[in-house]
Design a protein around this nucleic acid. Sequence first.
DNA 1: TTATGATAGTGCTATAATTAACATATCTAT
DNA 2: ATAGATATGTTAATTATAGCACTATCATAA
Lengths: 210, 210
Amino acid sequence: MKTLKVPEATIIRLSVYSRYLTEVDRKGIITISSGEIAEGVGVSPAQVRKDLAYFGEFGTRGVGYNVKDLRQHILKILGLSSDWSVTLVGLGNLGLALSSFKGFMERGFIITSIFDVDPSKVGNMIGNVKVMGVEQLEEVVQQNCTQIGIVAVPAPFAQEIVDRLVKAKVKAILNFSPVVLNVPPEIELRNVDLAVNLEVLTFNVCAQRY
Amino acid sequence: MKTLKVPEATIIRLSVYSRYLTEVDRKGIITISSGEIAEGVGVSPAQVRKDLAYFGEFGTRGVGYNVKDLRQHILKILGLSSDWSVTLVGLGNLGLALSSFKGFMERGFIITSIFDVDPSKVGNMIGNVKVMGVEQLEEVVQQNCTQIGIVAVPAPFAQEIVDRLVKAKVKAILNFSPVVLNVPPEIELRNVDLAVNLEVLTFNVCAQRY
DNA sequence: TTATGATAGTGCTATAATTAACATATCTAT
DNA sequence: ATAGATATGTTAATTATAGCACTATCATAA
């Protein structure tokens, strides 16, 4: 057990491992080796062991890992042993897609509030959540002890929404607007930029040159 | 000019720089320094210069970079000097959101075809693109010389769709299904896993422990 | 024309991440 | 019991990435 500085790449892989283990578990498989996990998710066996070694010893030498146990351990590491209350701000096309995204619920992310500015949307039900006007954001989010905010508003409004989420004491923000946002250092911020992803692809497609 | 092995992190940053430069250019600013770019996007000035150095010399010592020029150079590097034909497979909530995502069009990604299995969707118009049944995928995609496929279908169908895209000779695939996909090495594949992003956040929120 | 200030480009250093190698532990079969 | 096969955990080596500091170059103004 090394501990202390864990690369972000490791966290991302752990998340992928856990999802793969869920799949493997569903097939009724009891034990799995680092090599099989590696094969399944497309990394090296050493990488799998190294990633796990940051957090402890979860396997049995000569045998492998118990699928259920390892999965549980990883979920615990990722902070997924209990549910998270999530607020979604912005109910455009992307927001709507996110609101019904199964992958969130499956992993314990519960969307407990949804906000939009559009009066024609406010009051509507999305699943069993009522859409509210953004003016209520701080109050509702704080009351619910919501810890994660998802920002899916047009770029020009993103910073303002983020500021209000910070005021409402969320701990982490997932931003889908293609802008650089400023948050206090204690707030975790991640940006998902869809166009960037395509551009990495086009670079690579064109990259015989480099 | 160093060339040859460019880190992916560099490509991602270049994409961010270029977007920032677009913004700066709109404000009518002519010249910008590495320090100002760095400030604007939240990296170090050395990093900005290093990233650009992979591809050439674009600035003037003692002065900085011409905003328009640098922007154009970066777009060229990323392969964005001409448009890309993109096909979208899967018109669920996410697919629908992607189909109308402005960020794609702005950067020259043109969705030229959309496929779904649901007969109630086939035939509908999304913008000026007619939704087609997946059975036509190979034919249409190949005919259009579409080079990029976006996969937004449920996880169990993703591999099959990817196989068909490969058969249809796309060069790159952006996958939104949370599964590990197999493609031949010459095909560029990127995965966008929305839940993973949230899980990196929760880990960090919980990570006082580590 | 020359001195000064500013800033890009670059080589070197330090840090981080990945891969490889190995020593240790477990299970199975004889 | 013991030997052999297997697979983890860990240390070492390699590779990749980022940061720093120096050098070269340009613009400006005296």
